[in-house]
Amino acid sequence: MNNSLDTSVTVIGLGLMGQALAGAFLKAGHPTTVWNRTTSKADQLVAEGARLAPTVGDALKASSLTIICVTDYQAMHELLGATDIELDGTTLINLTSGASAQAREAAQWAEQRGAHYLDGAIMAIPPAIGTAEAVILHSGPQSDFEAHKSTLGALGTVTYLGADHGLASLYDVAGLAMMWSVLNAWLQGTALLRTAGVDAATYAPFAQQIAAGVAEWLPGYAEQIDRGSFPAEVSALETDARAMAHLIEESEAVGVNAELPKFIKTVADRSIAAGHGGEQYPVLIEEFGKPRND
């Protein structure tokens, strides 16, 4: 592991997130080289001590560790794919958002060019970078991660997920699924209560309590999924389905959009029709785990 604060770093891509990444490295004392198509985006960083490289090639040569934070994987390939770009011996950490298949393909491409490659995902907003609240996910060879873990720690809480380069992308979208599902459920409840004059701020603490309570179920439900056995220890799915019908009826009765609860009940009804009505809610993994073509 490299523990030296003198470790130099290159950051390619200076959108809001890229600027935050470079700024965190500078603040931690790392000599930092930056590059961006629009050079004016580097002005503040240069004023803080960063070096602006004239070309992508120069930026890569400046450091053995390069962080890439651009629009998408295509943009990364366009920037680094030229024949005059030398990647041999460089460690590339790609924090660009994309699909798991793209991450795996990028890893193969980088390795063919002689580079060490880690794929990553940033679970934070730019202002949080450099604090413990910023969670940065990494996947790829563990030896490459360990070699730069100390340097990467300048960005926040760094986490290694495994050797499969696609894991960071998958965790990223899994986190988004959680985020949007929780928010949509809260918005459904908020819409219901507003019909009775209850404002969102009044409902929010109760919603937080419910969300925290449901989160406590996850480890036990995860065990059921991993075992492939779903005994109804708390409630059977057919009982849950009756409560779902009540939510739909109440939403329609007070004039609130019922699409979300109808979708949830549709998934439950399919599982019940397949003979799982007497099992517990996590049995729905079998529905979520297969594609629908309709």
Score class of each variant (00 low, 15 high):
Arg270Asp: 13
Ser40Val: 14
Leu218Asp: 01
Asp269Ile: 09
Ser4Gln: 12
Asp43Cys: 04
Cys69Ala: 12
Leu79Trp: 02
Ala243Gly: 08
Leu167Glu: 12
Ser63Phe: 06
Leu192Pro: 06
Gln108Cys: 05
Ala53Thr: 08
Gly275Ala: 03
Asp58Thr: 05
Gly153Met: 08
Gly275Glu: 04
Val34Met: 02
Lys27Gly: 04
Gly89Ala: 13
Ala241His: 10
Ile264Asp: 07
Ile136His: 02
Ala82Ser: 09
Thr159Met: 11
Asn184Val: 09
Ala222His: 11
Lys27Ala: 13
Leu237Ser: 07
Leu161Gly: 09
Glu48Phe: 04
Ala212Gly: 15
Glu279Phe: 03
Ser8Ile: 11
Gly29Arg: 01
Gly189Pro: 08
Asn36Met: 07
Asn257Ser: 15
Ile248Gly: 01
Ile68Glu: 01
Ile85His: 00
Glu279Ala: 05
Gly15Val: 06
Gly162Leu: 08
Gly98Phe: 05
Pro231Ser: 04
Tyr160Gln: 04
Ala59Val: 06
Gly153Arg: 09
Ile85Gly: 01
Phe25Tyr: 05
Met1Asp: 13
Asp84Arg: 02
Ala207Cys: 09
Ile125Ala: 15
Glu105Arg: 13
Ala24Leu: 07
Arg113Asp: 01
Phe263Ile: 12
Met123Asn: 13
Tyr160Val: 00
Trp180Leu: 13
Gln208Leu: 12
Leu183Tyr: 14
Ala59Ser: 03
Pro127Trp: 03
Val182His: 13
Glu111Cys: 00
Leu137Val: 04
Val34Asp: 02
Ala253Ile: 02
Glu287Val: 14
Leu193Thr: 15
Ala273Trp: 07
Thr7Met: 08
Ala99Gln: 11
Ser169Leu: 06
Leu247Pro: 02
Thr10Asn: 00
Pro282Gly: 04
Asp6Gln: 14
Val283Ala: 09
Pro219Lys: 06
Ser271Asn: 03
Ala177Arg: 05
Leu26Gln: 02
Ser8Met: 09
Trp186Cys: 14
Ile225Leu: 06
Gly189Tyr: 10
Phe263His: 15
Glu105Pro: 06
Ile285Lys: 06
Asp172Gly: 08
Val254Phe: 06
Ala207Trp: 07
Ala99Met: 09
Asp172Ala: 10
Arg194Gln: 15
Ala134His: 03
Gly15His: 07
Leu187Phe: 14
Val56Gly: 00
Ala273Val: 11
Ala82Tyr: 01
Ile272Ala: 08
Glu216Ile: 03
Glu105Ala: 13
Leu45Pro: 10
Glu287Pro: 07
His30Pro: 01
Ala47Phe: 09
Ile122Val: 14
Thr7Lys: 11
Tyr73Ser: 11
Val46Asp: 10
Val56Gln: 00
Gln112Phe: 01
His276Trp: 03
Gly15Leu: 07
Thr195His: 07
Asp226Arg: 15
Asn184Ala: 15
Pro205Lys: 08
Ala82Asn: 05
Thr239Arg: 12
Ser97Arg: 05
